[in-house]
Design a protein around this nucleic acid. Structure first.
Lengths: 131, 131
DNA sequence: TCTTGACCTTCCAGTTACTGGAGACTTTAT
DNA sequence: ATAAAGTCTCCAGTAACTGGAAGGTCAAGA
C-alpha cells in the first residue's frame, strides 16, 4: 500500500491530480491509514495509469469514468468500448477540420500583411469587416 | 444608441456575452441610460463585431484585447499585428499536430477492435498498458 | 389605467480539469 | 530534538462564458 506521493510517482500523475481523482470519485484510494492518509494498492494504481493513458488520448474525465466502468465490467462487450472510442474519434475529426480552416484563413490574412512599420494591415481590416 | 439586447442582435453576440465583455472591460458601453441601461453606439458596435470575428478565429479574449488596442492605435505598425497573428498560427499548428497523432493512434486501436459482443478488446488492453 | 410580458439590472453559481496555497498535523531523517 | 518533507482539508483561481434568481423598467393591448 503506497501513500499518495508514492502512488503519484508510480503512476506518473501529479499528487494533486491523484487527490482530485479521489475527490470526484473517479479512482478512490484502496483505504486510509490510521492517521487518514490515502493508501493505494496495485488495483488502484492500475486504474490510475489507465486514466492517465485515456486522458492522454484526449478522453474527458467523464469518458474515463465510462471506460473505467467497462474496464472493470466482466460483461462488457468490445462493441461498447469501440462505440465510445469511435465517438471520440469523430469529435477529434470535427475539431481537426475546424482548426484547419482557421489556420488557412489566418495564414492567408498574414500572407497579405506586409509586416512593416506602416499602420495599414489587412488582418485588422478583415477583422473589422472591411471587404 | 442601442440597449444591450439590440446591440447583441446587431452584432450577432449573445446578450450575456456583451454584458460579460463590458464587465471585463473588453468593450465598454458608450454610456448608460438614466435608469442604468447599457447603451451602445456605432463605435462600440464595431468593436463588438471585431471581437466576435477575432474570437471566431480562435484568438483568446486577451489576444482580442491586444488586437483591439492595435486596432484603435494610430501608431500601430502592421508588423505588430502580424506578430500576434503568426504567434496564433503557431499555436494552432501545435494543436493540429497533437490532434493528428492522437487521432491516428485511436483509429489504429479501434481498427483492431472487433466491436462484437465478446469482452476482449485491444482498446482497453492498450489503455491498461498491456503490450 | 392596469396589467402582462419582454427586457433590463446585479449578483451568484456552475461549467472542465485541474493547480496553487494556507494552516495544521504526521512522518522521516539527521 | 528538531527540521524538512509529506499529508490532510478547504478555499480560490484558471477561460470564457452561461444560467438563474430577485427585482426594476418599458411598451402595448384591453
Amino acid at each position: 500500500m503506497l501513500n499518495i506521493g508514492s502512488a503519484a510517482r508510480a503512476t506518473g500523475l501529479p499528487t494533486k491530480t491523484v487527490r482530485y481523482y479521489a475527490d470526484i470519485g473517479l479512482v478512490a484510494p484502496g483505504g486510509r491509514s490510521e492517521k487518514g492518509y490515502r493508501l493505494y494498492d496495485d488495483r488502484e494504481l492500475r486504474k490510475l495509469v489507465f486514466v492517465r493513458r485515456a486522458r492522454a488520448f484526449g478522453f474527458s474525465v467523464e469518458s474515463c469514468r465510462t471506460l473505467l466502468g467497462l474496464y472493470e465490467d466482466q460483461n462488457r462487450t468490445s462493441a461498447d468500448v469501440k462505440k465510445v472510442t469511435l465517438n471520440h474519434i469523430e469529435q477529434i475529426d470535427r475539431k481537426l477540420a475546424e482548426l484547419k480552416i482557421l489556420r488557412e484563413e489566418l495564414a492567408h490574412l498574414a500572407g497579405n500583411c506586409k509586416g512593416d512599420d506602416r499602420p495599414d494591415c489587412p488582418i485588422l481590416s478583415s477583422l473589422a469587416g472591411e471587404r
